[in-house]
């Protein structure tokens, strides 16, 4: 199952929040340069999977290998420094920081990140709002800020948790465009989505999660053939 060339290799990942056992052995991998999407209903464990990779759940077991190195057992700051960056579902924009401070907050963990000018090219709106309080931005702008700020860090693997949630179609398009641009620049992306129509515009492959497990996988080309199954799993 695990591929020697994988950038990220998750194997038998289990996770708990306190007493509740949420992930029951999640297994999947992401190749360098791929955009891989985790699909699944509310509560399937998609966010918990990303958080477990980042080391921010209470307890986890199994294996998460990044670029060959085991991440289980490391703290989340060490994991970030290995070259992963996380954009949380709730976006995590800091209210006590202005836009510029939010943008410059994540430290550079390795060389090769985008510079600020390149981030403004992707998200021109941000440039006009540098002095605004982070949380005064619109939902779409906050999402751009949340993605933009992790591009500077030099992380090669981006974990994006439902970046389109609650946003207007035109903004969703812009985010799709951004993800394709990032892929073209060599970023590897693990995306969590409920909106598989959106995912189909960016993803190379899909994994479907249910009850804390990966239950299905297919490539983008197989999407149409799997639509029935998908509807069943996502309950749409």
């Amino acid at each position: 199952m695990s591929d020697a060339a994988s950038l990220l290799d998750v194997d038998g990942l289990q996770a708990w929040y306190g007493e509740s056992h949420i992930l029951h052995g999640v297994t999947f991998h992401v190749l360098p340069g791929e955009v891989v999407t985790l699909l699944g209903r509310n509560g399937a464990g998609k966010t918990t999977t990303l958080k477990s990779i980042m080391g921010i759940v209470g307890q986890r077991t199994g294996s998460v290998r990044f670029d060959g190195a085991e991440l289980i057992g490391r703290t989340s700051d060490q994991i970030a420094r290995a070259g992963l960056a996380f954009c949380p579902e709730e976006r995590g924009i800091f209210a006590s920081l202005n836009v510029e401070e939010n943008l410059l907050l994540p430290p550079q963990v390795r060389p090769g990140g985008l510079d600020v000018a390149a981030i403004f090219t992707l998200f021109p709106n941000l440039k006009e709002r540098l002095r605004s309080q982070g949380t005064k931005l619109s939902g779409g702008e906050q999402q751009m800020l949340a993605i933009g700020r992790i591009l500077r860090t030099g992380a090669r693997l981006l974990l994006l948790d439902e970046p389109t949630e609650g946003l207007a179609p035109v903004i969703i398009q812009q985010i799709g465009h951004t993800i394709r641009a990032l892929k073209a620049q060599g970023f590897t992306i693990l995306l969590v989505e409920q909106n598989f129509r959106f995912a189909s515009t960016v993803a190379d492959r899909y994994y479907i999660m249910e009850h804390g497990r990966v239950v299905e996988q297919f490539a983008n080309a197989e999407l149409e053939a799997n639509l029935d199954k998908l509807h069943e799993y996502l309950g749409v």
């Binding site: 700051d77 960056a85 800091f94 920081l97 410059l104 907050l105």
Partner: peptide
């Protein structure tokens, strides 16, 4: 300052600041 921004951010959401690679 930059250092102060880390402090303010960590006051708000230490988990996320740590997940950015800062030793909170």
């Amino acid at each position: 300052t930059r250092l102060g921004a880390y402090l303010r951010a960590a006051t708000e959401n230490p988990t996320l600041v740590r997940a950015f690679g800062i030793n909170v």
